[in-house]
Design a protein around this nucleic acid. Structure first.
Lengths: 205, 205
DNA sequence: TCGTGGATTTACCAAATGGTAAAAATTTTA
DNA sequence: TAAAATTTTTACCATTTGGTAAATCCACGA
């Protein structure tokens, strides 16, 4: 009997929870929390609404679980930035990785954007406890690199925000991109090389 | 009898339509189209729901009117970029203007973001007819400036997209910003000077 | 000041929404 | 294979939602 069950999940449970979360990601990432309905999620998942509520405590529980998963997955590349590596290489590697993630997982990106635009009502604690310390640490690291003359001097916080802004934008504003640059393949390739060029020039002392 | 009335609007009509649009902007910009309700808008406006439907044909009509207004207001600064001016000055002026707008009118920015993230269901025609031609024209202008050696060479389309990405980000992700950079005043000042620095360095040949 | 048309409220609807209880079906286990 | 446990469906329910009809209120010009 799932919901908030402690026992190890059965085969069916694992499959259906995955199917539901995937459907919910699709729906929530498009319409935000309030704009999404359990019926939409149920249809997308190919299950009945009560069946979905058999696996999750409710609409909010699904959303919370998606956000928790999101945080850990999207913070990883930032964590991996190595203090002992070459500063330019580390930062550009991080930027490239983020662009690839935006390209590969635009739904996660939109889910996050929706939550933040809404005022982060269900995520603020996660931001405080998860994102903030890591952000501060990486700001310190970047500042140290700048002090060592390895990077052009600038505000590390706003540097990181710029990176997030641009990578996030290419995922979230896909609909606009498709109007302005009709060929998706060319657009993404152009985006990746432009972003690499841009930050290389910016970071070079 | 308003709704789609042709007659010149009375004093009361003008005031109430303005009040309703302002309330709707507040609500739509937070929750997106589907996540917003007429009751929320009515409460925010200090009017009854039927009274709101006395002034507008329905929920969608309000949203459409907001989007139309948005387009003309936010495209203006791009239009004003002068082909005969100094390229660096024109572009940096545009960037500064966009940052100021993000700071002053974050609700419009979020309204737009919500619509695009959702797939631009009500705005795609506007993008095609309004944004696309202007975007292409300005790409040509920037390319000409680059050909003349006045700006560093890069893909003009992605340059413009970078500008939009960053200015948009500071407006839409305010909730995240407040966690990472607790003092709003310092954050915004830092943002504006960082963005100016960043693009000056990028654009200098 | 009084009538008239514009503005507002009251009282509703039908459909959609998040959620529940219990029966039915199916899978697992003994 | 039969009992036990899990999974799914059926049938609901209360609330919310976008919207309407008609009654009422009120501002303003004759």
């Amino acid at each position: 009997m799932p919901d908030g069950s402690q026992k190890k999940p059965s085969r069916i449970q694992k499959r259906n929870r995955r199917v539901i979360l995937d459907a919910a990601l699709e729906v929530f990432s498009r319409h935000g929390y309030r704009g999404s309905t359990l019926d939409q999620i149920a249809t997308e998942a190919g299950l009945s609404k009560p069946n979905i509520l058999y696996y999750f405590d409710g609409k909010e529980a699904i959303h919370v679980e998606l956000l928790a998963k999101l945080m850990s997955e999207w913070l990883a590349p930032l964590e991996e930035m190595d203090p002992d590596g070459d500063p330019q290489k580390e930062l550009l590697g991080y930027i490239t990785k983020k662009m690839e993630m935006s390209r590969a997982y635009p739904r996660q990106s939109r889910l996050f954007a929706n939550e933040i635009i809404q005022g982060a009502p269900r995520m603020q604690p996660h931001l405080q406890s998860g994102l903030k310390p890591l952000f501060d640490a990486k700001c310190d690291l970047i500042r140290a690199w700048m002090d060592a003359g390895k990077l052009a001097r600038m505000d590390p916080a706003h540097l990181i925000l710029s990176i997030w802004a641009i990578t996030q934008h290419y995922a979230d504003f896909e609909a606009q991109l498709q109007v302005l640059l009709p060929d998706p393949q060319t657009a993404w390739d152009g985006a990746e090389s432009h972003v690499a060029f841009m930050f290389r020039k910016l970071l070079t002392p």
